[in-house]
Design a protein around this nucleic acid. Structure first.
Ligand SMILES: [Mn+2]
Ligand SMILES: [Mn+2]
Ligand SMILES: [Zn+2]
Ligand SMILES: [Zn+2]
Lengths: 142, 142
DNA sequence: TATCGGATGAGAATGATTATAAACCATCCA
DNA sequence: TGGATGGTTTATAATCATTCTCATCCGATA
Protein backbone atom coordinates (compact mmCIF):
# COMPACT_ATOMS: atom_id res chain seq x y z
CA UNK A 1 0.00 0.00 0.00
CA UNK A 2 1.19 3.50 -0.82
CA UNK A 3 -0.47 6.58 0.60
CA UNK A 4 -0.77 9.85 -1.24
CA UNK A 5 -0.01 13.02 0.65
CA UNK A 6 -3.73 13.73 0.52
CA UNK A 7 -4.76 10.39 2.02
CA UNK A 8 -2.38 10.79 4.93
CA UNK A 9 -3.60 14.34 5.49
CA UNK A 10 -7.14 13.03 5.85
CA UNK A 11 -6.11 10.23 8.23
CA UNK A 12 -4.21 12.70 10.37
CA UNK A 13 -7.12 15.13 10.44
CA UNK A 14 -9.48 12.38 11.61
CA UNK A 15 -7.23 11.78 14.59
CA UNK A 16 -6.24 15.36 15.30
CA UNK A 17 -2.61 14.91 14.33
CA UNK A 18 -0.53 17.61 12.69
CA UNK A 19 0.80 16.65 9.29
CA UNK A 20 4.57 16.64 9.06
CA UNK A 21 6.89 15.14 6.53
CA UNK A 22 8.55 12.87 9.12
CA UNK A 23 5.19 11.63 10.33
CA UNK A 24 4.05 10.69 6.88
CA UNK A 25 7.25 8.91 5.99
CA UNK A 26 7.29 6.92 9.25
CA UNK A 27 3.70 5.88 8.80
CA UNK A 28 4.22 4.84 5.22
CA UNK A 29 7.30 2.84 6.12
CA UNK A 30 5.30 0.73 8.55
CA UNK A 31 2.33 0.29 6.24
CA UNK A 32 4.58 -0.70 3.38
CA UNK A 33 6.61 -3.14 5.46
CA UNK A 34 4.13 -6.03 5.69
CA UNK A 35 5.75 -7.42 8.79
CA UNK A 36 6.26 -6.93 12.48
CA UNK A 37 9.21 -4.62 12.84
CA UNK A 38 11.03 -2.77 15.59
CA UNK A 39 11.53 1.00 15.89
CA UNK A 40 15.16 0.50 14.87
CA UNK A 41 14.06 -1.32 11.73
CA UNK A 42 11.66 1.47 10.84
CA UNK A 43 14.36 4.02 11.64
CA UNK A 44 16.76 2.34 9.22
CA UNK A 45 14.13 2.38 6.47
CA UNK A 46 13.03 5.95 7.03
CA UNK A 47 16.60 7.29 7.09
CA UNK A 48 16.93 6.44 3.43
CA UNK A 49 14.31 9.10 2.70
CA UNK A 50 15.08 11.50 5.56
CA UNK A 51 18.71 11.05 6.62
CA UNK A 52 18.43 13.69 9.32
CA UNK A 53 15.50 12.10 11.14
CA UNK A 54 16.02 11.24 14.79
CA UNK A 55 15.30 7.89 16.41
CA UNK A 56 13.25 9.71 19.05
CA UNK A 57 10.96 11.01 16.34
CA UNK A 58 10.37 7.48 15.13
CA UNK A 59 9.54 6.37 18.67
CA UNK A 60 7.31 9.39 19.24
CA UNK A 61 5.31 8.79 16.12
CA UNK A 62 5.01 5.04 16.50
CA UNK A 63 3.59 5.56 20.01
CA UNK A 64 1.26 8.20 18.69
CA UNK A 65 0.01 6.02 15.86
CA UNK A 66 -0.54 3.11 18.22
CA UNK A 67 -2.53 5.29 20.62
CA UNK A 68 -4.69 6.54 17.75
CA UNK A 69 -5.26 3.03 16.49
CA UNK A 70 -3.51 3.81 13.22
CA UNK A 71 -1.04 1.04 13.96
CA UNK A 72 -1.18 -2.05 16.09
CA UNK A 73 1.31 -3.02 18.75
CA UNK A 74 2.50 -6.61 18.34
CA UNK A 75 3.96 -6.78 21.83
CA UNK A 76 1.14 -5.66 24.10
CA UNK A 77 2.50 -7.21 27.28
CA UNK A 78 4.11 -5.56 30.22
CA UNK A 79 7.59 -4.65 29.06
CA UNK A 80 9.30 -6.51 31.89
CA UNK A 81 9.61 -10.19 32.67
CA UNK A 82 6.77 -11.93 34.50
CA UNK A 83 6.91 -15.51 35.70
CA UNK A 84 4.20 -18.02 36.46
CA UNK A 85 4.50 -20.83 38.97
CA UNK A 86 1.32 -22.48 37.75
CA UNK A 87 2.68 -25.42 35.77
CA UNK A 88 -0.71 -26.75 34.72
CA UNK A 89 -1.28 -25.84 31.05
CA UNK A 90 -3.62 -22.88 31.03
CA UNK A 91 -4.39 -19.78 29.02
CA UNK A 92 -4.16 -16.09 29.83
CA UNK A 93 -6.45 -13.14 29.57
CA UNK A 94 -4.48 -9.91 29.21
CA UNK A 95 -5.61 -6.31 29.47
CA UNK A 96 -4.15 -4.37 26.56
CA UNK A 97 -4.13 -1.18 28.61
CA UNK A 98 -2.92 -1.98 32.13
CA UNK A 99 -1.19 -5.24 31.11
CA UNK A 100 -2.72 -7.25 33.93
CA UNK A 101 -2.79 -11.00 33.38
CA UNK A 102 -5.38 -13.48 34.64
CA UNK A 103 -5.58 -17.20 34.17
CA UNK A 104 -8.51 -18.33 32.07
CA UNK A 105 -10.12 -21.75 32.08
CA UNK A 106 -12.12 -23.51 29.43
CA UNK A 107 -11.76 -25.24 26.09
CA UNK A 108 -12.51 -22.43 23.70
CA UNK A 109 -9.97 -23.28 21.01
CA UNK A 110 -10.99 -25.31 17.99
CA UNK A 111 -7.69 -27.07 17.39
CA UNK A 112 -8.96 -28.88 14.34
CA UNK A 113 -9.74 -25.60 12.66
CA UNK A 114 -6.59 -23.94 14.00
CA UNK A 115 -4.28 -26.64 12.68
CA UNK A 116 -5.61 -26.08 9.18
CA UNK A 117 -4.09 -22.61 9.26
CA UNK A 118 -0.74 -23.50 10.76
CA UNK A 119 2.37 -23.19 8.62
CA UNK A 120 4.03 -26.48 7.90
CA UNK A 121 6.10 -27.84 10.76
CA UNK A 122 4.81 -25.49 13.44
CA UNK A 123 4.81 -27.32 16.76
CA UNK A 124 1.71 -26.83 18.89
CA UNK A 125 2.32 -29.71 21.27
CA UNK A 126 1.83 -27.44 24.25
CA UNK A 127 -0.38 -24.72 22.88
CA UNK A 128 -0.63 -21.54 24.88
CA UNK A 129 -3.12 -18.88 24.01
CA UNK A 130 -3.34 -15.30 25.13
CA UNK A 131 -6.53 -13.35 24.63
CA UNK A 132 -6.29 -9.56 24.72
CA UNK A 133 -9.03 -7.16 25.65
CA UNK A 134 -9.80 -4.55 28.29
CA UNK A 135 -10.28 -5.39 31.95
CA UNK A 136 -13.34 -4.00 33.69
CA UNK A 137 -11.48 -1.11 35.24
CA UNK A 138 -9.80 -0.03 31.99
CA UNK A 139 -12.98 -0.50 29.95
CA UNK A 140 -14.75 1.86 32.35
CA UNK A 141 -12.13 4.59 32.04
CA UNK A 142 -11.84 4.58 28.27
CA UNK B 1 2.01 -25.22 47.63
CA UNK B 2 5.02 -25.66 49.86
CA UNK B 3 8.01 -27.77 48.88
CA UNK B 4 10.08 -29.74 51.32
CA UNK B 5 13.82 -29.58 50.99
CA UNK B 6 13.66 -33.15 49.74
CA UNK B 7 11.12 -32.43 47.01
CA UNK B 8 13.16 -29.55 45.66
CA UNK B 9 16.28 -31.69 45.76
CA UNK B 10 14.57 -34.23 43.52
CA UNK B 11 13.29 -31.61 41.11
CA UNK B 12 16.75 -30.10 40.82
CA UNK B 13 18.34 -33.50 40.27
CA UNK B 14 15.92 -34.26 37.44
CA UNK B 15 17.06 -31.12 35.68
CA UNK B 16 20.72 -31.27 36.58
CA UNK B 17 20.68 -28.21 38.81
CA UNK B 18 22.79 -27.85 41.93
CA UNK B 19 20.80 -27.41 45.10
CA UNK B 20 21.45 -24.14 46.87
CA UNK B 21 19.51 -22.36 49.55
CA UNK B 22 18.92 -19.29 47.35
CA UNK B 23 17.67 -21.47 44.54
CA UNK B 24 15.15 -23.22 46.72
CA UNK B 25 13.85 -20.04 48.27
CA UNK B 26 13.46 -18.29 44.91
CA UNK B 27 11.61 -21.24 43.45
CA UNK B 28 9.30 -21.55 46.41
CA UNK B 29 8.54 -17.84 46.35
CA UNK B 30 7.27 -18.11 42.77
CA UNK B 31 5.31 -21.30 43.36
CA UNK B 32 3.71 -19.84 46.46
CA UNK B 33 2.83 -16.56 44.81
CA UNK B 34 -0.14 -17.66 42.69
CA UNK B 35 0.25 -14.78 40.31
CA UNK B 36 2.30 -13.33 37.52
CA UNK B 37 5.12 -11.42 39.12
CA UNK B 38 8.27 -9.61 38.09
CA UNK B 39 11.83 -10.40 39.20
CA UNK B 40 11.70 -7.33 41.44
CA UNK B 41 8.56 -8.65 43.10
CA UNK B 42 10.17 -12.03 43.72
CA UNK B 43 13.32 -10.28 44.95
CA UNK B 44 11.30 -8.34 47.52
CA UNK B 45 9.66 -11.52 48.76
CA UNK B 46 12.84 -13.56 48.90
CA UNK B 47 14.76 -10.87 50.77
CA UNK B 48 12.54 -11.42 53.78
CA UNK B 49 14.07 -14.88 54.09
CA UNK B 50 17.55 -14.15 52.73
CA UNK B 51 18.30 -10.44 53.25
CA UNK B 52 21.72 -10.76 51.62
CA UNK B 53 20.47 -12.23 48.35
CA UNK B 54 21.33 -10.34 45.18
CA UNK B 55 18.91 -9.30 42.46
CA UNK B 56 21.20 -10.93 39.92
CA UNK B 57 20.72 -14.26 41.65
CA UNK B 58 16.98 -13.90 41.33
CA UNK B 59 17.33 -13.16 37.61
CA UNK B 60 19.79 -16.02 37.13
CA UNK B 61 17.56 -18.54 38.75
CA UNK B 62 14.33 -17.38 37.17
CA UNK B 63 15.96 -17.72 33.74
CA UNK B 64 17.28 -21.11 34.66
CA UNK B 65 13.91 -22.34 35.91
CA UNK B 66 12.20 -21.08 32.78
CA UNK B 67 14.72 -22.84 30.55
CA UNK B 68 14.21 -26.09 32.45
CA UNK B 69 10.45 -25.76 32.23
CA UNK B 70 10.16 -25.49 36.00
CA UNK B 71 8.49 -22.11 35.57
CA UNK B 72 6.59 -20.50 32.76
CA UNK B 73 7.36 -17.12 31.26
CA UNK B 74 4.27 -14.94 31.03
CA UNK B 75 5.84 -12.52 28.59
CA UNK B 76 7.16 -14.72 25.80
CA UNK B 77 7.40 -12.00 23.18
CA UNK B 78 10.42 -10.28 21.82
CA UNK B 79 11.47 -7.86 24.52
CA UNK B 80 11.38 -4.84 22.24
CA UNK B 81 8.51 -3.03 20.60
CA UNK B 82 7.15 -4.39 17.31
CA UNK B 83 4.53 -2.63 15.23
CA UNK B 84 2.06 -3.94 12.70
CA UNK B 85 0.69 -1.93 9.81
CA UNK B 86 -1.95 -4.52 9.04
CA UNK B 87 -5.10 -2.89 10.37
CA UNK B 88 -7.43 -5.74 9.45
CA UNK B 89 -8.29 -7.65 12.64
CA UNK B 90 -6.16 -10.77 12.64
CA UNK B 91 -4.43 -13.12 15.03
CA UNK B 92 -0.78 -13.99 15.57
CA UNK B 93 1.22 -17.14 15.77
CA UNK B 94 4.34 -16.65 17.88
CA UNK B 95 7.39 -18.86 18.29
CA UNK B 96 8.21 -19.11 21.97
CA UNK B 97 11.88 -19.61 21.21
CA UNK B 98 12.90 -17.20 18.45
CA UNK B 99 9.97 -14.82 19.01
CA UNK B 100 9.05 -14.64 15.35
CA UNK B 101 5.49 -13.52 14.63
CA UNK B 102 3.27 -14.57 11.74
CA UNK B 103 -0.25 -13.57 10.91
CA UNK B 104 -2.75 -16.38 11.20
CA UNK B 105 -6.15 -16.60 9.55
CA UNK B 106 -9.22 -18.53 10.50
CA UNK B 107 -12.01 -18.55 13.06
CA UNK B 108 -10.65 -21.00 15.60
CA UNK B 109 -11.91 -19.32 18.76
CA UNK B 110 -15.28 -20.30 20.18
CA UNK B 111 -16.26 -16.90 21.53
CA UNK B 112 -19.48 -18.21 22.99
CA UNK B 113 -17.59 -20.67 25.11
CA UNK B 114 -14.83 -18.17 25.86
CA UNK B 115 -17.24 -15.54 27.13
CA UNK B 116 -18.57 -17.96 29.72
CA UNK B 117 -15.15 -17.88 31.35
CA UNK B 118 -14.56 -14.15 31.19
CA UNK B 119 -14.49 -12.17 34.42
CA UNK B 120 -17.35 -9.75 34.74
CA UNK B 121 -16.92 -6.57 32.72
CA UNK B 122 -14.01 -7.75 30.60
CA UNK B 123 -14.28 -6.09 27.19
CA UNK B 124 -13.61 -8.34 24.22
CA UNK B 125 -15.06 -6.06 21.56
CA UNK B 126 -11.89 -6.28 19.52
CA UNK B 127 -10.44 -9.60 20.55
CA UNK B 128 -6.86 -10.36 19.69
CA UNK B 129 -5.47 -13.80 20.12
CA UNK B 130 -1.89 -14.97 20.19
CA UNK B 131 -1.05 -18.63 19.86
CA UNK B 132 2.37 -19.74 21.08
CA UNK B 133 4.32 -22.72 19.87
CA UNK B 134 7.58 -23.54 18.12
CA UNK B 135 8.25 -22.59 14.53
CA UNK B 136 9.55 -25.27 12.21
CA UNK B 137 13.16 -24.18 12.52
CA UNK B 138 13.12 -24.05 16.34
CA UNK B 139 11.18 -27.30 16.63
CA UNK B 140 13.89 -28.99 14.56
CA UNK B 141 16.72 -27.73 16.74
CA UNK B 142 15.22 -28.63 20.08
C1' DT C 1 4.03 37.15 6.01
C1' DA C 2 3.92 37.04 11.29
C1' DT C 3 2.62 34.35 15.05
C1' DC C 4 2.12 30.36 17.96
C1' DG C 5 1.91 25.71 19.59
C1' DG C 6 3.15 21.48 18.63
C1' DA C 7 7.04 18.63 16.38
C1' DT C 8 11.77 17.61 15.80
C1' DG C 9 16.73 16.50 16.79
C1' DA C 10 20.76 15.74 19.69
C1' DG C 11 22.11 13.96 23.47
C1' DA C 12 21.46 12.93 28.41
C1' DA C 13 18.89 10.09 31.60
C1' DT C 14 16.43 6.10 33.05
C1' DG C 15 15.39 1.37 34.07
C1' DA C 16 15.58 -3.48 33.17
C1' DT C 17 18.61 -6.91 32.31
C1' DT C 18 23.15 -9.06 31.56
C1' DA C 19 28.18 -9.47 32.05
C1' DT C 20 32.33 -9.68 34.95
C1' DA C 21 35.24 -11.31 38.34
C1' DA C 22 36.31 -12.45 42.95
C1' DA C 23 34.60 -14.93 46.92
C1' DC C 24 31.78 -18.69 48.25
C1' DC C 25 29.98 -23.26 48.98
C1' DA C 26 27.78 -27.93 47.58
C1' DT C 27 29.57 -32.12 46.25
C1' DC C 28 32.76 -35.63 45.65
C1' DC C 29 36.59 -38.32 46.95
C1' DA C 30 40.65 -39.67 49.66
C1' DT D 1 36.84 -35.33 58.13
C1' DG D 2 39.70 -32.26 54.96
C1' DG D 3 40.80 -30.69 50.57
C1' DA D 4 40.07 -30.16 45.55
C1' DT D 5 36.72 -28.87 42.01
C1' DG D 6 33.39 -26.48 39.53
C1' DG D 7 29.29 -24.41 39.62
C1' DT D 8 26.92 -20.36 42.34
C1' DT D 9 26.51 -16.00 44.44
C1' DT D 10 27.52 -11.22 45.12
C1' DA D 11 28.63 -6.48 44.07
C1' DT D 12 29.20 -3.71 40.59
C1' DA D 13 29.91 -2.28 35.93
C1' DA D 14 28.13 -2.47 31.39
C1' DT D 15 24.58 -2.71 27.96
C1' DC D 16 20.48 -1.79 25.58
C1' DA D 17 15.88 -0.05 24.56
C1' DT D 18 13.28 3.62 25.51
C1' DT D 19 12.08 8.12 27.36
C1' DC D 20 13.17 12.79 28.66
C1' DT D 21 14.89 17.57 28.07
C1' DC D 22 15.17 21.55 25.82
C1' DA D 23 16.62 24.48 22.19
C1' DT D 24 15.26 24.94 17.52
C1' DC D 25 12.16 24.31 13.80
C1' DC D 26 8.04 24.38 11.05
C1' DG D 27 2.95 23.82 9.73
C1' DA D 28 -1.34 25.97 10.32
C1' DT D 29 -3.89 29.84 10.61
C1' DA D 30 -5.09 34.67 10.14
MN1 LIG E 1 -0.99 -18.10 34.72
MN1 LIG F 1 0.18 -9.04 12.02
ZN1 LIG G 1 -6.76 -3.07 32.47
ZN1 LIG H 1 11.30 -20.14 16.22
Amino acid sequence: MRLTHEQFRELAAEHGLAVTHQRQVVFEAVIASHGHYSPEDIYATVRRRIPSISLATVYNNLRLFIECGLLREVTPHASTLRVDGNLKPHHHLVCSRCKSVRDIEGEFIDFKRLSRHLPDGFDLTQPLVEVFGLCRRCAAKK
